[in-house]
Amino acid sequence: MNNISQDLLKELKGNGADYFTSVPCKLLGDLINLLAEDQSILYTPVAREEEGLGLCAGAYLAGKTPVIVMQNTGIGTIITSLFSLGLFYNLPITMIVSHRGTPGEKIGTQVPMSNATMPLLDTVGIPYFAYSDPGDVKNVGRLVQHAQVAQRPVAALLDFDFWGKA
């Protein structure tokens, strides 16, 4: 278990997050294990990112503060619903996104989507913030608050250096 995942979950919860859903990524393994064990939150793993966005929407409508934990490749599958659910209804959903294909990556097929991730988020109009230093973990946690202010989905892009796995 690395400390960055423990610290990140503590910061997210400290900023009010109480509903989590996830689609796996190697970089997110420790965080997902922590979510599954944490009795103080609601947590549901899902089969695909769009499903997770739907769960987060429902949780928000019921008064929860939702977070989706996912890999950047999932941005490709989630775009239509970011438009027609997340942005259309102005839903504050924090997206904790592992940024594969960044330096430290060992799998070549991850690189093309890695390069497209920021331009895609720009096109959709999702505010995003990229972090490469584990020391930024408090800033990542603050995005839960920022999503409430922005009244829309907000994404953190967290690369290999952030997770200490470069």
Binding site: Y19, V46, E50, G54, K64, F88
Partner: peptide
Amino acid sequence: NFYMLGSMGLSSSIGLGLAQSL
């Protein structure tokens, strides 16, 4: 009534997140 006007496929998921939260 929550009218889901877009996001085809996600009615079941939105309802599930709601029900879990309540």
